[in-house]
Simulated assay, not measured.
Amino acid sequence: MTFVKITEQPSLHDDLETKSVRELLEEINEEDRKVALVVREAIPQIEKLVTSVVERMRRGGRIFYMGAGTSGRLGVLDASEIPPTFGMPPTLVVGLIAGGDTALRNPVENAEDDRQRGWEELRQHDIGELDTVIGIAASGTTPYVIGALHEARRHGILTACICSNPDSPMAAEADIPIEMVVGPEFVTGSSRMKSGTGQKMICNMITTATMIRLGRVKGNRMVNMQLTNSKLVDRGTRMVVEELGLGYEQAKALLLLHGSARRAIDAYREEHR
């Protein structure tokens, strides 16, 4: 049976160069509106993955995103946002991209075609059975990702993937395949568009739900966020004010002393109980 890439099928829109800016924007938006509905259909698989990841991370496991091009960049992006948002070490969610950091800004020729390289990079991080490897590739055919998933699975490591084609070679190497079939792209084959949007949404869902289940959010607040700028210091101060009923300056001093809203609140309550 021939594997058909829906991601490479002709766009539902044609003669793009003849359209006005308004027409282009409205038609791009028309396609984008389909993404959230498709992601919703994938929630059962995302739930299965998050449940498994949380159980492993509670025992010391990590998440590794693997991807090339746009897919790799989105994995690195999601991983890089975990420390400032949730106050977790940068080693717990790791984004690996074919071609390394150079590929974040510039394409690295043939990097994604190396089937062995992904697993070699995972071994450099001392990958183990409590870890989870999540491959990201719109096509579902990227050798760098497929090779890494294959070896990870062979070594008893949980594997998952996010792709935009059903029954892909990548999905065949995943214990938990997440297939969000968004259909042909607005510009034929340009998977940085709908596929990229869906990948970003799913990565957000995976790590945000995981961090919440691991206790890194209180109510709906980022009480463990890093205080890396004045905006975040102000946000954290207001959290302390609301939680403890202190004045703004007292709350700010407490926050800066302890380094996070959660630690400031816990320390104050411990001292005054």
Score class of each variant (00 low, 15 high):
Arg117Gly: 07
Pro107Glu: 10
Ala152Gly: 15
Glu121Gln: 10
Ile157Gly: 09
Ala160Tyr: 02
Asn106Gly: 05
Val133Ser: 02
Asp167Ser: 14
Thr102Gln: 15
Ser164Phe: 02
Arg115Val: 05
Ala138Asn: 13
Asp114Met: 00
Asp126Ser: 12
Gly140Ser: 05
His125Tyr: 14
Asp167Gln: 13
Gly135Asn: 00
Gly128Asn: 07
Glu179Thr: 08
Met180Ala: 14
Ala171Arg: 00
Gly183Lys: 13
Leu122Cys: 04
Leu158Arg: 09
Val108Thr: 10
Arg123Leu: 15
Gly135Pro: 03
Cys163Tyr: 03
Ile176Cys: 10
Glu179His: 05
Ala174Arg: 03
Gly156Phe: 10
Pro169Lys: 05
Tyr144Phe: 15
Pro169Cys: 09
Ser168Tyr: 00
Asp131Leu: 05
Asn165His: 02
Val181Leu: 14
Leu104Tyr: 02
Pro184Ile: 09
Ala137Asn: 01
Leu158Met: 07
His155Ile: 02
Ala171Trp: 04
Gly135Trp: 12
Arg153His: 10
Ile136Val: 14
Ala137Ile: 01
Glu173Ser: 02
Glu129Gln: 11
Gln124Pro: 01
Ile157Ala: 09
Ala172Tyr: 04
Val133Cys: 06
Tyr144Pro: 11
Pro166Phe: 01
Arg123Lys: 15
Pro184Asn: 06
Glu179Trp: 12
Ala148Pro: 03
His155Leu: 13
Asn106Trp: 09
Glu173Asp: 01
Thr159Leu: 06
Ala171Leu: 02
Glu109Arg: 13
Gly118Arg: 05
Cys163Leu: 14
Met170Arg: 02
Thr132Met: 05
Asp131Val: 09
Gly140Met: 00
Ile127Pro: 01
Ser168Asp: 11
Ile134Cys: 06
Ser139Cys: 01
Gln116Ser: 15
Gly183Ser: 05
Asp113His: 11
Asp114Tyr: 10
His125Met: 14
Ile127Asp: 06
Thr102Cys: 13
Glu121Ser: 02
Glu112Phe: 07
Ala152Gln: 04
Asp175Pro: 09
Ala172Ile: 07
Asp131Gly: 05
Ile178Leu: 01
Glu151Gln: 12
Asn165Arg: 04
Glu151Ile: 03
Ile162Arg: 02
Thr142Phe: 01
Glu121Trp: 03
Gln124Cys: 13
Val182Phe: 12
His150Pro: 04
Arg123Asn: 07
Ser164Ala: 10
Gly183Phe: 06
Ala171Val: 00
Glu109Trp: 06
Ile134Pro: 11
Gly183His: 03
Thr102Glu: 15
Trp119Met: 00
Glu129Lys: 14
Ser139Leu: 10
Ala138Ile: 00
Tyr144Thr: 07
Ala152Ile: 08
Arg105Asn: 15
Trp119Tyr: 12
Val181Trp: 01
Ala152Ser: 15
Val182Gly: 09
Thr159Glu: 02
Ala174Ser: 12
Val181Thr: 15
Arg105Trp: 00
Glu179Phe: 04
Gly183Ala: 06
Ile127Leu: 12
Glu120Leu: 12
Gly140Glu: 07
Cys163His: 11
Ala172Trp: 08
Ser168Ala: 11
Leu104Lys: 01
Asn106Lys: 15
Val182Asp: 11
Gly147Ser: 04
Ala148Asp: 08
Pro107Tyr: 03
Tyr144Ala: 05
Cys161Thr: 02
Val145Lys: 09
Val145Arg: 06
Ala172Asn: 01
Ala111Asn: 07
Cys163Ile: 13
Ser168Pro: 01
Arg153Phe: 05
Asp167Ala: 13
Arg123Ser: 15
Gly156Leu: 14
Leu158Tyr: 04
Pro143Lys: 11
Gly135Asp: 12
Ile157Phe: 10
Gly128Ala: 09
